[in-house]
Design a protein around this nucleic acid. Sequence first.
DNA 1: CAATAATCATCAGTATACTTCCTTTTATTG
DNA 2: CAATAAAAGGAAGTATACTGATGATTATTG
Lengths: 185, 185
Amino acid sequence: MSVAKSVRTDGTQNKKATAAAPNPELQQLIERLPLWKRPGYLIRRLHQVHYALFFEECEGFGITPVQYGLLTILSGNPDSDQISLAQALGIDRTNVADVLSRLAQRGLVERTRSTEDKRMVLARLTGEGEKLVAAMHPAMSRAQDRLLDTLGDKERDAFLATLIRLLEANNKYGRAALATGKFGE
Amino acid sequence: MSVAKSVRTDGTQNKKATAAAPNPELQQLIERLPLWKRPGYLIRRLHQVHYALFFEECEGFGITPVQYGLLTILSGNPDSDQISLAQALGIDRTNVADVLSRLAQRGLVERTRSTEDKRMVLARLTGEGEKLVAAMHPAMSRAQDRLLDTLGDKERDAFLATLIRLLEANNKYGRAALATGKFGE
DNA sequence: CAATAATCATCAGTATACTTCCTTTTATTG
DNA sequence: CAATAAAAGGAAGTATACTGATGATTATTG
């Protein structure tokens, strides 16, 4: 079986994070595997973990995290166009169209051409969509809580604050830039 | 009057927030928007930011973060089978096969059937693959650094420690569970 | 040793998430 | 006001990331 030998030195060496990694086996792994020193890798993994938790809690609803995010926005902002939705949700506009079409196919969302601007397609929840958002909320919420369950209050708050700070600092990157407009008013 | 109309009044540049006093505009946004209270949402966004930074730094190489991660593992562990790679990289085995086939198509990776166990397909870097890993490393490293650039040493270390702690606690979720035995021992 | 179980890979299918190119509609301007 | 630019959406294509089913090979066991 293949065994790791001298692994490439990773240029992204930050100082060893000793605060919270009690498992010595894992600690050793982190030292030897270059991937575990790359924040991008860690974030990708955590993203996957969230998906897994979400599906575990929300099993039976057949709704993905992104779909639920979109439904949430529509719940507070009916008749939104696709580009506004994309900016609010932080995904690409073509992706919004894809997600909307799946939701529409299931009768959770309606789409209409705007009469004021015939370029726009406006989306809103159906009655069924509203019901599903409400029914699913507790399960979604549990998934969110479980992700950070292992942290104490202080560490959890610090983690969330850092996440938000990083997003703010890097807002300009990617197509899915945050729109600091007036959703939610 | 559609909400969407008034939403697209962005263009507000975020000013850099200090640690003590975050951007009040953003704070307000977080209060208003339910999504910004969901850690899963924030992590998804940060994941996207990392991708954007990665592509900005690594433009011209035509390699994605996941592809580079796989190349990194192969660099230290030639002739690995796909399931071992999947566990080391934290992605699904079917996905590993997809990524490998793209890398093989570009001549960066070779695949052979194991003679010992004819079920296994073993992958290794070609000379070209090795060269690319080395050539790309500085750019990849810059992308990783830039993601956390805005943080001070202390906050960065705390953030990484929490990330690792969360991954450790939730390792069991999803197909892509970390294998703590295979590599790095 | 044959039947069964476990393992590894592959295939088909779904859902994000993005790029590039294109059409339609609206806004701008010479 | 006609020519042009900008904006919204759509279509096609690529790359992750997963589920479920299938087939081939190896390991186990009755």
